[in-house]
Design a protein around this nucleic acid. Sequence first.
DNA 1: GCTCATTGTGCAACTAGTTGCATAATCCGT
DNA 2: ACGGATTATGCAACTAGTTGCACAATGAGC
Lengths: 182, 182
Amino acid sequence: MSLPHAILTALLEKPSSGLDLTRRFDKSIGYFWSATHQQIYRELGKLEAEGFIRALPTEQPARGQRKSYEVLPAGRAELQRWTAAAQDPKPHRDALLLRLRAAAVVGTAGLETDLRRHLDLHRRQLAEYEEIEKRDFPPGNDSAQARLQHLVLRAGIELETFWIQWLTEALEELPEPAEQAS
Amino acid sequence: MSLPHAILTALLEKPSSGLDLTRRFDKSIGYFWSATHQQIYRELGKLEAEGFIRALPTEQPARGQRKSYEVLPAGRAELQRWTAAAQDPKPHRDALLLRLRAAAVVGTAGLETDLRRHLDLHRRQLAEYEEIEKRDFPPGNDSAQARLQHLVLRAGIELETFWIQWLTEALEELPEPAEQAS
DNA sequence: GCTCATTGTGCAACTAGTTGCATAATCCGT
DNA sequence: ACGGATTATGCAACTAGTTGCACAATGAGC
């Protein structure tokens, strides 16, 4: 149950419309909590109904009309509560590791191409993170807020670094063109 | 759509009943693809209907009666197909990173306890993985199958190591008892 | 002024995963 | 032999997330 809180966080950082949020999810919060625009619109409706946010009273609220939201005090309180509450880590699900495990049984034929593709995707993601780091966290900025945000970004950087290294190892492990392990 | 393939993999490693599978998911495959017993029973039904597995013909198939399944050739073929098929990485969702990001906005009050708890959980998981590594992958076993399985286990070990290190850093970053960052 | 691509909001239907409970068989102590 | 814990299977209802589509408003080209 984290999507509403992801949205509250984003809205506190900056009041936004549904589409703004969708865009920001694609390039920031979405790195560790992705959401589609439909999820976001639905959730905005719920959050408004619960009194956690409200639409900024601008013009006509017709279809195809931007509607911006801001967080109300109750919303901030809820986010604070959620942040401090104990939460069990969700069980992980990683299809790639599962595939390697399956490959140990049915053979690695055909795997290499996709592993290389994943390696490439992770390299791009890492580059993107490093770009953000250079841009948003130059040395010397040490407000509490910046330090926490930087910490989160570094988690992303280190995870990508891990995957790149692991995939490289995995590719070395793969046998020549064809082999069957069963 | 990976659960059926996780089950096929597990059944290829060893034909099992629903409960056997549930147990094995808890201590092996489930480390990177968790599933509850209900998911497993439902999926076993589907896989049987699709002709990928069949119940081992033993005794009465009544309720409360063990029923074991084995993989049929079609099931193995399907697993092979899936293993080789290209798959996009699913977007990650990590509630803990999200919380840290929220904490950057609403303050870190109350976070420390739960971070310590997570740190502890990751330490235990790492210990468990290392135990398995010592037991199942002693130096010198170099069959293709063992090397791949070991590779997967090492991913688990390195990920836990990462989280332990990152959480340690995060805890250092937290200010004394109370502070507000908004 | 009209048409067409783009922007922005949203509904509906679906898939995957979770939670809570029901029920049958078996095993174990008495 | 009976009663309660444990083992084993499963249904039903729910929550979260995804996919596909509909439709209004806006702006740009002609």
